[in-house]
Amino acid sequence: MRDGRWEIDANGMHYRALNARLREAVENGAECIVLRNVCGQRYIGANLHRPVEIHIYGTPGNDLAAFMDGPRIIVYGNAQDACGNTMNGGEVVIHGRAGDVTGYSIRGGKIFVRDDVGYRVGIHIKEYQEQRPFIVIGGTAQHFLGEYMAGGVLVVLGLTLRPGECHTATYIGTGMHGGVIYLRGKVADYQLGREVASVPLEDGDWALLRQLVQEFAAHFNRDAEEILAAPFTKLVPLSSRPYGRLYAY
């Protein structure tokens, strides 16, 4: 430890011990924590709620940043499933891929993933008062992207797709009743859930996208203008009450 900077070697450590060390460091006022040799340890950053920067080298396990509220986590590698589970605030930047249900139910904060993500990413993300979550995915996503989405912004840039290749996710935005999804490139109608519609982008959309893509580009050393030069698809829910007429009273 030096000047608020801590280093923890996670080699062979059980997650419980690692997270206890992490909590101890945060409680002792650490401003920057470097975790080395991380190999599948779960729950890193769970429920941490102070402004601290955590650099992870290796592969953090499931539920990275679960319930987190404030810290900034940078992963130099891939993340596994349920990264950002029920996160309330803070930022996660992943220099690699992320697994299934990335950003499950997040209510605030930002998640940037450089490459592809798994199934049901951005499921049930929601916004509340001044809290608005953002998920930006550099690559492409699997099926049920943005399922049940109730708020927030989900951006999929498709930068890992080869020229001419399209997103293959289906059931995009199924059950969606709030928020907005932007996909770089086109998606066919059959790929969309029944509760969403594709609408043209307006000036406000481009301003928001520019801001998010610039942040993405800064994190991963990409050219924002080049990314923004391609056409985008905007998906919005048809109703905030998709199941209002389902029942007999």
Partner: peptide, 16 residues
């Protein structure tokens, strides 16, 4: 912690 007047949908399973 959701906006007023929107449906509160609880998915059948926890998707994690």
């Amino acid at each position: 912690m959701i906006p007023q007047g929107t449906d509160a949908l609880s998915p059948a399973p926890h998707h994690d």
